[in-house]
C-alpha cells in the first residue's frame, strides 16, 4: 500500500517536472526540472524492484548527462527564451496535438494483445541478473551498440578538432619525397594527391 502511494506521488512529480520543463523560460530552470524528472523516474524503478536500473539512472542521467547540460548552459551563458509568434502557434497547435497523440498511444497500448501489468516490487533487477542479460544473453546487440557509441564519439572528436591539424599539416619529408617519386615529380600529380587526401 505504501509502495503504491509512493509510486503515484513520484509519478505525479515526474509529470509535473516534465510540464515545468516546457513552461520555464530559462534554460537552467528547464534543465533542473529535467533532473527532477530523472530522479523521480529512478524512484519509480526502485519501487518496481529494479534497484540496479534505478542507481544507474541517477548516476548516468542525473549525475553525468544533466551535469553536462548544465555545464554547457553555464558556459554559453544562455539567456531567457524569447517568445515569438511562431511559439504562440506552436502552443495553440501543440497542446491539442499532444493530447490526441497521447490518447492514441494509450488506446493502442490498451488494445494490444500481450499487455499485462506489473505489481509494485515484482520486477526482477538485481545487478547480477542484468549483468548476465547484458554480457551473456544479449552480448552481440550490446557490443554492436557500444561500437555505435564509439563511432559517435569519434565523429565528435573529428568535428571538434581544429581544421588545420586534419588537412594542411605539413607532411614529413621522406613521405613527401616518396610521394613525389611515385607521382613522377609533376606538380599536377601532386595536386591530385593532396586533393584526394583532403576529400
Amino acid at each position: 500500500m505504501l509502495h503504491l502511494i509512493l509510486f503515484s506521488v513520484f509519478a505525479v512529480i515526474a509529470v509535473a517536472g516534465a510540464l515545468n520543463l516546457l513552461v520555464q523560460r530559462h534554460p537552467i530552470s528547464s534543465a533542473l526540472s529535467l533532473i527532477v524528472v530523472m530522479g523521480s523516474l529512478a524512484v519509480e524503478y526502485l519501487l518496481l524492484g529494479a534497484e540496479f536500473v534505478a542507481a544507474i539512472q541517477v548516476i548516468i542521467y542525473a549525475g553525468a548527462i544533466m551535469v553536462l547540460f548544465v555545464f554547457v548552459i553555464m558556459l554559453l551563458n544562455a539567456g531567457v527564451e524569447e517568445r515569438t509568434k511562431g511559439s504562440k502557434v506552436a502552443l495553440i497547435l501543440g497542446f491539442p496535438a499532444m493530447l490526441v497523440g497521447g490518447l492514441l498511444v494509450a488506446w493502442v497500448l490498451l488494445r494490444a494483445p500481450n499487455v499485462g501489468s506489473v505489481n509494485v516490487g515484482a520486477m526482477y533487477g538485481p545487478p547480477k541478473a542484468i549483468g548476465w542479460l547484458l554480457f551473456h544473453d544479449f552480448l552481440l546487440p550490446f557490443e554492436v551498440t557500444s561500437v555505435l557509441v564509439l563511432i559517435a564519439i569519434m565523429g565528435a572528436v573529428v568535428l571538434a578538432s581544429p581544421v588545420r591539424s586534419r588537412f594542411s599539416r605539413p607532411q614529413p619529408e621522406p613521405e613527401r619525397q616518396a610521394l613525389k617519386a611515385a607521382a613522377g615529380t609533376e606538380p599536377a600529380h601532386e595536386e591530385t594527391v593532396t586533393a584526394r587526401r583532403s576529400s
Binding site: A55, G63, V67, M74
Partner: peptide, 24 residues
C-alpha cells in the same frame, strides 16, 4: 542495501550541482 556503493556514487555525482549552481 545491496547497491550501497552505487548509491554513494550516485549521491556524490548529484552533489556536483551544489557547486555548479552556486557558481552560476
Amino acid at each position: 542495501v545491496n547497491i550501497g556503493l552505487l548509491i554513494i556514487l550516485g549521491i556524490t555525482s548529484i552533489g556536483v550541482y551544489g557547486i555548479a549552481l552556486a557558481g552560476w
